[in-house]
Design a protein around this nucleic acid. Structure first.
Lengths: 339, 339
DNA sequence: CTGTTAGCGCCTTCAA
DNA sequence: TTGAAGGCGCTAACAG
């Protein structure tokens, strides 16, 4: 584990350490042969400049922190891959932390990352209700921060979001056009921007086609399967049977699917189902689930690019918002007249 | 972004920087009131010791690198969570990199991590055939490295593995006891230790109960769904219909499931299915898939603990191997007499 | 108990 | 074109 330092190389070649340094940073004057020679010997000796020392002097760590609610489901991992794709190319390392959907943990993570002097952060908020003070403070200090997916409109930072409104609209419209009337929406936590937008899209579609609904059609669930299953079970037991359900994500939709199957009802004959934020599960459940797919990798790439812009501008670049588009993948779970 | 340094704090209080340093590392003698005072003022000023400088002096980064084949499926993310659970507690940060199942990328990742002076690495090999030289060299240098899941028996490092042999045996035994005879095994790449062990377990079970099989019953697939589907499709088209299939993982099993359903055959009536390395999918496919679950989080925790041991022993601790146990979760996909 | 001093490994100005 | 020297922010002997 003993590392070879610049000194060792200098001594070996009978030159000063500055010369070796120059050879490695070739932005200073140095004779070509000297440089070549030094690089060659350094290579032989297995010398690599100590990045820590470099960071100390450059006041830059080339580390970027990413805070996500979780990375068990494939959504965030895919975004992270997109982030890494861009950042690795620029020589950055990525530190990934999870908040476990907990606001307190989220803040702790952020402080840890600050302590580790990351050059910037990419954040997706936890589902808990939060206070913006810490983020606002961070931004005021000029700290480069980019939010994605779970964002807060009141935080004036760069953001990458999915067009939840539009695609919730399309998802609902699809159900309407299939001829379904009594269409429920299992929404995510309603204090989240993303849920609000999906609800707006849902309403807009029903309004546009004059499909009647009451506020009771919109039921708040979390993002987990159990919740979707429990809510659906309750609805069925109450005899409150929807013709179709638009769920805030695939997980919740599949929870609902389980409940429906247990009640021995048929999908889509008795109840049609549409998910959101398409996951690999959509294609393997029976019947396959109609869902809206998001460009996850692209979201990561865009977030990374926005962050790089913030970093290179010393935090003085104006915040930008990128809105991404998706696609509605129609599968059997919502095809009228099936079975 | 301007950071307050130890100097600022010292000057403000008219003490030397060593005193401030002592206050923060309270392992040296320092008067209690001085310490309290310093800590208080430092807090007010928003001072936090610069971790980079600390790392430079301690010759330790408190960073650990993790290299996994991918983290789209939930398996590796779960292991990573386990790893982080232990390491974060000890003040380590975790750098996660993916090899995308590519040996070359894996090596590049490892070199990047070395360049970043991680204090140790936790690695799960890619599925490609690899050369051990670089790993052997790393170990010789005393670099702390722990392998998990995808390991190579010829690398004398600490390892955490699942008892593939035993649980492949149990999975197969289960099928035998249900009364199935013609039992196929869709194996992972056979140059991987893990696949070899699963094959051994499969054979052992069949041998023990004198269930006849030929080498043609063992078919090499990768780890992806498409492969499972393609192989199964081919088998069915050839009229080579197994009574039961034990697949190397859930993904492959579900691929097979798709092919079987497309051929309008019933599971388990016509063909029974058993997966491995249980994923969340097992419970949501129809019929639910029998599978062997692995203690993923525990695997991560153990790997982290072994690594910490290597790190604190300066690489002189003898390599240890931890073998973990799992559980067979029987579901409808393999229940004889169903439907 | 506290201050002085010498680095950790590297970059960068200033002289030569 | 090269070397000497100072310093990035902090820790850790060694004095006092």
């Amino acid at each position: 584990m003993k590392h070879i330092t610049i000194k060792d190389v200098a001594r070996r070649l009978n030159v000063s350490i500055s010369t070796v340094s120059r050879a490695f940073n070739n932005k200073y004057d140095i004779r070509k042969e000297t440089r070549t020679k030094i690089l060659q010997v350094a290579e032989e000796m297995g010398y690599r400049p100590n990045p820590i020392a470099r960071k100390l002097i450059q006041q830059k760590t080339f580390n970027v922190g990413v805070v996500v609610p979780e990375f068990i489901n494939s959504y965030f991992p895919e975004v992270i891959i997109g982030i890494q794709e861009i950042l690795h190319k620029q020589g950055y390392q990525v530190l990934v932390m999870q908040s476990n959907e907990c606001y307190t943990t989220e803040l702790i993570n952020i402080k840890t990352l600050e302590d580790n002097m990351v050059d910037g952060m990419i954040i997706s908020l936890s589902q808990e209700i939060h206070n913006n003070d810490y983020y606002l403070n961070l931004l005021e200090k000029g700290y480069p921060v980019v939010f994605f997916n779970r964002v807060d409109e009141d935080i004036p930072a760069s953001k990458v979001v999915f067009d939840d409104y539009k695609w919730a609209y399309f998802a609902t419209e699809h159900l309407v056009k299939q001829g379904y009337k009594k269409i429920y929406h299992l929404s995510g936590y309603q204090h989240l921007n993303l849920s609000q937008n999906r609800i707006r899209g849902y309403r807009k579609a029903l309004d546009k086609f004059s499909v009647p609904y009451t506020s009771e059609y919109i039921i708040e669930t979390g993002f987990y399967m159990e919740e979707g299953q429990a809510i659906m079970k309750k609805l069925l037991e109450e005899g409150n049977i929807p013709e179709a359900v638009f769920a805030t994500n695939d997980t919740v939709a599949i929870g609902a699917m389980k409940a429906i199957k247990k009640a021995r009802l048929k999908i889509p004959k008795d109840i049609a189902l549409v998910g959101f934020t398409e996951s690999k599960m959509a294609d393997i459940v029976d019947p396959p689930l109609t869902s809206v797919s998001q460009p996850t990798f692209e979201m990561g790439r865009k977030a990374a690019e926005l962050l790089l812009r913030q970093i290179s501008s010393d935090g003085f670049a104006a915040p930008e918002t990128v809105v991404l588009n998706g696609r509605l993948n129609v599968r059997d779970s919502s095809r009228k007249g099936l079975r």
